[in-house]
Amino acid sequence: MTDDHVYLTLAESDHEAEARWAYGTGFADPLLGVDTALAPDVDGADLSLYCQMLGDDALILSQRLIEWCTRAPELEEEVALANLGLDLLGQARLLLSRAGQADGSGRGEDDFAYWRPEHEFRNVRLVEVANGDFAFSVARLLLFATARGALYELLAGAPDPVLRAVAVRGAKELAYHQEYATAWTLRLGDGTAYSAERMQAGLDAVWPLLDELFTPHEVELRLGVDPTALREPVLAALAEVITEARLTVPTALPLARIGGRAGRDGVHTEALGPLLAEFQSVAREHPGATW
């Protein structure tokens, strides 16, 4: 132990140092030991679509979080926001990979992320709208993390082993996201007059997009993972935070659907097109290339 280099002593404590890195040789497979065989009573096409729904939510929100990079209100928040983005990106990768296994197409995570057209993206509209200011982003994160955390707890009993594994791991990550978003909602809501105004405006703006997270798609119903059950506990949890932040729980009506369809059906806002154009641009410039 070298006493004048604290981090050397810290480094000594790990036997799998490499596993800590997002890259490097020792990357630990999060699905290690998980039986990836499809359960016989689960429809592969349905499971694939469901994995795309949850995977796209995580993927698109991580892209929005990434847009904060070099623009955060303080350097400590740069690190925190990147962490949230990395967690969601990690979940998206597992879920999209599973989607390609489930439907038997053998498509990988990148096939889904880079080569699907917009109308095949299944994310809710909440995650795709532009970032707005920090209060708006915090409001969106609060809604998403609260709802997704609750869903992952529910999915700990899902019919698919990979989905279960993602949910168990993701629930811990989402608990942190919720803690982060809650803390900032309180600070902004109960901070200065201006920040309270911004936080309220942020909540009012994202509120109409919340309902989609509780509106079941036929695929979800067939898989027995009805998100309707989340509505009450999530609304109660949100109301508690918003009240503690001395703000008003918005009463705005849900954003209208189009002919009964919305994000889960591949019908989006105008925000998704430009996001994907940027996201997919390099990959599409080099068809067939590996990176």
């Binding site: 990434i66 990768r93 995570e109 990148d110 390099v282 990959a283 080099h286 990176w291």
Partner: peptide
């Protein structure tokens, strides 16, 4: 960052 050509 927003244009990286693979998720990895």
């Amino acid at each position: 960052l927003t244009r990286a050509p693979s998720l990895r």
